[in-house]
């Protein structure tokens, strides 16, 4: 179901899944290109969570998806504020935030019963990626505009905000990696966010949905 929510800068669309009562998972997709590469996976996860009796919500944020705000006017502040408003719009149900990659930069202001993060990426990490894409794509091209990254024009304020240390978040937090050798718990699966063509992986989605469902149960216990 396509729903919408209001935030101080306007109104944005929000996909809704599962039951209308009980816990609900609000998703923060990664910024920019990685959002396209992970959307199919996230939708599969939300459908599976609905099978666990858990609601789901996937908001467009100002400057993303169907939002009328141009990407070049997107700010981290606006993304955070709209995401927090999306959480409030879900009412009195327990809202659990799940973010993918750089979505962890967006979820910080939301009032949430808990935060679950898959392979979180820092702002400086994302910036490094953006600059690398810019340099590699410049190889066969003439000199690119300094504020255009892989075809996206970004606001200087966004670039500046990404270059900051991580914001602290209150409440329970679970961070999950996709490969061993890191301190975080692991859910094995492919790095779909790196793929040149967007893909999906039902078995990976199932492991994610199971982990989120267990995490929610442990937060509510």
């Amino acid at each position: 179901m396509i729903n919408s929510y209001d935030w101080e800068g306007g109104n944005e669309a929000m996909l809704r899944f599962g039951p209308d009562t009980g816990p609900v998972v609000l998703i923060a997709l990664p910024l920019l290109e990685e959002a396209n590469r992970t959307r199919a996976l996230v939708i599969t996860v939300l459908r599976m969570l609905a099978g666990h009796g858990i609601g789901g919500a996937l908001p467009d944020l100002p400057g993303t998806g169907e939002s009328l705000l141009p990407t070049s006017e997107m700010t981290l502040e606006g993304l955070r504020s709209a995401f927090a408003a999306a959480a409030l719009s879900l009412g009195s149900r327990p809202v659990h935030v799940a973010s993918i990659r750089s979505g962890s930069l967006i979820d910080v202001q939301a009032k949430a019963a808990g935060r679950w993060r898959l392979a979180p990426q820092s702002g400086p990490g994302l910036l490094r990626d953006l600059h690398r894409v810019q340099r590699v794509s410049e190889l066969g091209d003439t000199k690119a505009d300094a504020l255009v990254f892989a075809g996206n024009r970004l606001a200087p304020a966004l670039i500046e905000a990404l270059d900051q240390p991580p914001a602290a978040t209150p409440g329970p937090l679970r961070e999950v990696a996709i490969q061993s050798g890191q301190p975080d718990p692991v859910i094995e699966g492919p790095a779909l966010w790196r793929r040149s063509e967007p893909g999906n992986d039902a078995a990976f989605a199932e492991r994610i949905a199971d982990d989120i469902a267990r995490w929610i149960a442990s937060c509510d216990a």
């Binding site: 690398r132 894409v133 340099r135 590699v136 794509s137 066969g140 790196r194 040149s196």
Partner: peptide, 8 residues
């Protein structure tokens, strides 16, 4: 392609 090189 060059985008994939950056990701790789």
């Amino acid at each position: 392609d060059s985008m994939a090189v950056a990701g790789l």
